[in-house]
Design a protein around this nucleic acid. Structure first.
Length: 450
DNA sequence: TCTGGGGTCCTAGGACCC
DNA sequence: TCTGGGGTCCTAGGACCC
């Protein structure tokens, strides 16, 4: 059996841990630039806030409905995720961290009749030790565990835990799950299946293998088999090395001139290179893209990208920076209002596995220099030391107006507890300072894949 | 005025190899 | 005159996930 543990409304729950006053109230968390809704508390879901709702369009309604707002604080969420995952991994010999808020456990070998109690124990422990509420779904395959987790969340009687155990439970679960609520079947395939008259997971699981293979590929067939109880997806316990690294942002306002874009792409290159070195990797290629605002259809649209190989593979900020600027020069066209840019590092491999070059010797002073910069930035904050040619771009990044403090990762933000308090009080000495150094820390970590 | 960011896997088709 | 079989690599696009 597999268990899937999923943190309930994770980003909202992280905010609530340190501000208990948010408990029981409708709360939403917004994406970068305070653009869209990316997390909702149950109360917010109940009054009709949808995932992806555009904030500026619904602002007034949200205010009227008394919905509380937070900007996303990935530094906090990443750290809380780490805490939750390390607790979960003590509950089974094998665990797979699937995303920032989800974890699969391998429960094979556990006594079947004790699984539900065990799952309740998991919920209690995580809640007590971190403050984060979680739900547990249990099934014979990962896909069924996912499905069980949905039931655990929705069904009040389940109290956060559901185990698909008997044939009758399986049939019931499949009957009551809409086709697009199956893990691995998205909007497109769902629509196509609906057109075939298939509405539920039960209907999908009964389809002929040949038809599924032909119309949905091997991934579709795997999903069907998993729903029938055949394991096709095993637990992925090793964190796989990344294949690519991406840093991209939409701008708070559009940008026309080359110099501003130059500085932004430089910043992205620096951030991407730092991520690369953090993972002890090198990149064999990189790609830069720029695009105008696709929502402004009355404006001329332009979008372009270009890829460049890097030989030998590198993780040097200088070299990545230089290549990125070359590409930007190639793809930039004057006269457009740019709204988004990004850099992708490709063909990654572990630094120690980098192929040697016959006619290339690394200058050891370079790597020492980069290493020293990384140490300084780690100690004093990102951007404390940087290349002289790298101007800090200003004004392109819309402020996150409602961001909570970095409660768990910044000394200045650690909550104070006093004898009079019943619970943690957030330290209000430093809310949003507008301090560039502090704000900057946020720009680095937008990883949602943990 | 304002509309997120970061990933993975699979497939088909072209180009090429022996 | 006609003409086999087996393979790799690359890329773009589509689909999915959180």
């Amino acid at each position: 059996m597999f268990a899937l543990i999923d943190c309930n409304n994770f980003y909202c729950s992280c905010e609530r841990v340190f501000q208990p006053a948010l408990e029981g109230k409708p709360l939403i968390v917004l994406s970068n630039n305070d653009g869209c809704v990316i997390a909702r508390s149950n109360e917010a879901k109940a009054i009709g806030v949808l995932m992806g709702d555009v904030y500026f369009k619904h602002k007034d309604r949200f205010r009227q409905q008394g919905i509380l707002i937070r900007s996303s604080n990935y530094t906090l969420y990443g750290d809380m995720s780490h805490r939750v995952m390390s607790i979960l991994s003590t509950f089974a010999p094998q665990a797979e961290i699937y995303s920032i808020d989800e974890c699969f456990l391998d429960l094979s070998g556990f006594a079947p009749h004790g699984l539900v109690d065990y799952a309740h124990d998991i919920c209690r422990t995580v809640k007590q030790w971190t403050g984060i509420p979680v739900s547990v779904g249990i099934g014979q395959t990962k896909t069924l565990a996912k499905l069980a987790n949905r039931i655990a969340k929705r069904n009040k009687l389940a109290r956060g835990v559901y185990c698909i155990d008997t044939a009758a439970q399986l049939e019931g679960a499949l009957q009551n799950t809409a086709i697009t609520d199956i893990w691995g079947i998205g909007r497109r395939l769902g629509k196509r299946l609906n057109a075939q008259g298939i509405q539920t997971a039960a209907g999908f699981a009964r389809l002929q293998d040949g038809w599924i293979r032909k119309n949905m590929g091997v991934t579709g067939l795997r999903t069907a088999l998993e729903l029938r109880g055949t394991i096709c997806l095993s637990l992925d316990t090793q964190q796989q090395d990344k294949q690519s690294i991406c840093v991209s942002r939409s701008f708070g306002k559009s940008i026309d001139d080359y110099d501003a874009l130059h500085d932004i792409v430089s910043t992205f290159a620096t951030m991407a290179a730092a991520k690369l070195r953090k993972g002890k990797m090198v990149a064999g290629g990189l790609s830069v893209f720029i695009r105008t605002n696709a929502f402004q259809q009355n404006q001329p649209q332009y979008s372009n990208a270009q890829t460049m190989g890097m030989i030998p593979a590198t993780n040097s900020t200088q070299e990545i920076h230089k290549a990125a600027q070359q590409i930007l020069k190639n793809i930039y066209r004057a006269g457009h209002h740019y709204k988004k840019a990004g850099i992708l590092l490709l063909d990654l491999c572990r630094a120690e596995a980098r192929p040697d070059m016959l006619f290339h010797t690394e200058n050891p002073r370079n790597s020492k220099l980069i290493e020293s910069c990384d140490v300084i930035n780690q100690k004093f904050g990102v951007g404390s030391i940087q290349y002289g040619q790298l101007k800090r771009p200003r004004g392109w990044y819309a402020p996150q107006k409602y961001r909570s403090p970095h409660y768990t990762t910044s000394w200045a933000d650690i909550p104070l507890a006093s004898a009079q308090d019943n619970f943690f009080q957030p330290d209000n000495r430093r809310q949003h300072t507008g301090n560039r150094q502090d704000d900057r820390r946020d720009e680095g970590d937008a990883d949602t894949k943990g």
